[in-house]
Design a protein around this nucleic acid. Structure first.
Lengths: 112, 112
DNA sequence: AAGCGTTATATTTGTATGGAAACAACGCCA
DNA sequence: TGGCGTTGTTTCCATACAAATATAACGCTT
């Protein structure tokens, strides 16, 4: 059995984690579901954890990432801003590039 | 304040973590100290945790990484094999390459 | 005005992780 | 042969993390 190289990347501001793979997955679910509770349920995450993650994202973001509203037409909801969509896109592009870089290095480990 | 991209890489075999940054730090300390207990103390890690990590490394490695001996001249000890040294070197090279790749991608995040 | 589906928040409960300490086994050495 | 400094292993406890539960607040809708 050969070795595999795995990686995790994330974005920080002042030692606060801002964006990682789990948060990106949550943001994408928010984009398709339109609500935080439905997004959390769709990815098997508790509402509380989802709310905590979203709160951390919004607190350390330079511009708003998700707009939430309480009460109203359908009880409220959460929508991803264009800035949030761009962030997700950039994150995933960089992440894929990291994977392909690591794949190219695999021989250095397996051929020792 | 600008964003920073951070990363963690590790090596797996069959869903078992084989080598990561913490294990590499432990292996390097073993190389300089010659014993597991002294290595653990030198990097502020409990002996039990160090032993557990080393056990996992040895169990999923394709060739021996650390040779341990019980009893004897100085009570025993732990020595890094040439294979282990090569692994550490390759791991750190790949890790640095990952960091420089990510640094080059930073503008994609900060310029949105 | 009551009901609904949200967001937002606090409280409790359960679980997993990690450290501390204790101790057996081992083999050289004096 | 007893002492020493290791590795190897178990047990217990504390702490942090995660999950479940409960509830308030909100504002449209009917």
């Amino acid at each position: 059995m050969n070795y595999k190289i795995k990686s995790r990347i994330w974005i920080e501001t002042d030692d606060n984690v801002f964006l990682g793979e789990g948060r990106v997955r949550l943001l994408k679910a928010i984009d398709t579901k339109g609500s935080l509770s439905k997004a959390a349920k769709s990815i098997g995450m508790s509402y509380k954890k989802a709310w905590t993650l979203l709160d951390a994202v919004n607190k350390s973001a330079k511009k708003p990432v998700v707009i939430t509203s309480v009460g109203g037409k359908n009880g409220g909801g959460a929508t991803l801003t264009p800035y949030g969509k761009s962030l997700i896109s950039a994150f995933e592009t960089i992440n894929k590039g990291c994977w392909t870089y690591l794949d190219k290095q695999l021989d250095q480990i397996n051929n020792i």
